[in-house]
Design a protein around this nucleic acid. Structure first.
Lengths: 224, 224
DNA sequence: GCGGCGGGTAACCGATCGGTTACTTAACGG
DNA sequence: CCGTTAAGTAACCGATCGGTTACCCGCCGC
């Protein structure tokens, strides 16, 4: 029967998993996390209201505090899960078997697309930086935040150089930051940019145009 | 001409300089604006406290409301001034007389340096995007927000193409966004990036390294 | 079928917070 | 000097807001 409690999977390294946590409680917890993600991304940490989060979750404030202890702990949990979710998808990006330029293009495109698909992640990051990464620093699995993309990028870069199709002396960390930047900034600032330029930037056509451009930028730069 | 009913004789608790404005009042207004910029950049709009702003300014809440009417009006004013300040400095960047590659390098470097020197501007922008540019859209001089850099960039690009030193078919708006992105993202996310990579990114050495890298990216990309 | 307990509710609380009011002080032209 | 008025102060107010307390319900093993 579906009662199998083997749901371990241990993704919840969040708050003490004291006891196994019943299905109903786990569902409530999940609804609160989803609601909190939406609220936090929409209004920021200071602008979010715990009552509103509880209401969105169809839960009660009491349950929110039972699960997470405080608004700030909830924030940290949401943040960690957002990072984990991105890391998860990143792992699925297989580029080892591709020619370096194609592999690089895929990394660049993945990043833009993920970012465009998850503006909440961008909003969360911006908020966290406003707090000088105070919460992230408190996280216990910060090392795990180190994206698989960095290593993938390093590998592709090395292969490209070895094959003579990429320039030499590129700093992987700098390039990684640049690739993140080219996508992230576009999504993060889409509202002010749209206002200033007078064009919608969140349409599929606009995103596709952006993808073409930033891929050209990175590949153009990497030419030997 | 019946004596107009009370009519409160011009509420004047306005945003617009209610006529002359004495030197003392102007100074107070300025101190409030400075304090508000610092507070908003540090804590965001929702996280900022008007009492705290008034205290920082060495002024009183009453004066804050007399000059700006509301927290949100104050935010808008601060935001407009931040944009205006950047625009002002941008105008001083003269690149028409330089060879296109050097001109382009200067535009790229200027942007990074300005951004690094003014992280408050970055914080303000992020906040405003969280609000979906709601305040910016209300601004009366949005057109003026259109950066002089865009036109400078367009000119340099055209010259470079004409001289055969730049590739063809580059979309100025996309390149402009990319140049902004390469600097802005680095500064905006310096705290989370520092945490993840375990290195300080706000030292002069780190910024100089970033400048070298992003200049190479843009110029490398633009090669024909 | 029942009693304990984990899950859930609602009312409440002290601390703020944005904004206002009643009042005081400084400036300056006549 | 002195009266008008702009600039400044402090105390106050209603509405929230994060967090807590007292209480209830229904599912489970026994």
């Amino acid at each position: 029967m579906p009662g199998a409690p083997a749901q371990k999977a241990e993704p919840t390294a969040t708050v003490r998993p004291a006891h196994p946590l019943s299905a109903r409680a786990a569902a409530t917890r999940q609804r609160i996390l989803d609601a909190a993600l939406a609220e936090f991304a929409e209004k920021g940490l200071a602008g979010s209201r715990v009552d509103e989060i509880a209401a969105r979750a169809g839960a009660n404030k009491r349950m929110l505090y039972a699960h997470f202890g405080s608004k700030e702990e909830l924030w940290l949990t949401v943040l960690e899960r957002a990072y984990a979710a991105k890391r998860e998808e990143e792992r699925a990006v297989a580029v080892e078997h591709l020619p370096p330029p194609e592999a690089m293009a895929r990394l660049v495109a993945f990043n833009l697309r993920y970012t465009a698909r998850h503006p909440e992640f961008v909003a969360l990051l911006n908020q966290e930086n406003l707090h000088r990464a105070a919460y992230l620093r408190r996280s216990e699995d910060v090392p795990a935040l180190y994206s698989p993309l960095v290593e993938a990028l390093r590998g592709v870069l090395a292969r490209g150089v070895a094959e003579g199709v990429f320039r030499n002396g590129v700093e992987p960390m700098q390039l990684y930051i640049s690739i993140l930047a080219l996508g992230h900034f576009y999504v993060a600032n889409r509202h002010t940019l749209s206002t200033i330029f007078g064009t919608r930037l969140d349409t599929e056509a606009a995103i596709a145009a952006r993808e073409t451009h930033i891929t050209e930028v990175v590949l153009g730069y990497l030419r030997p």
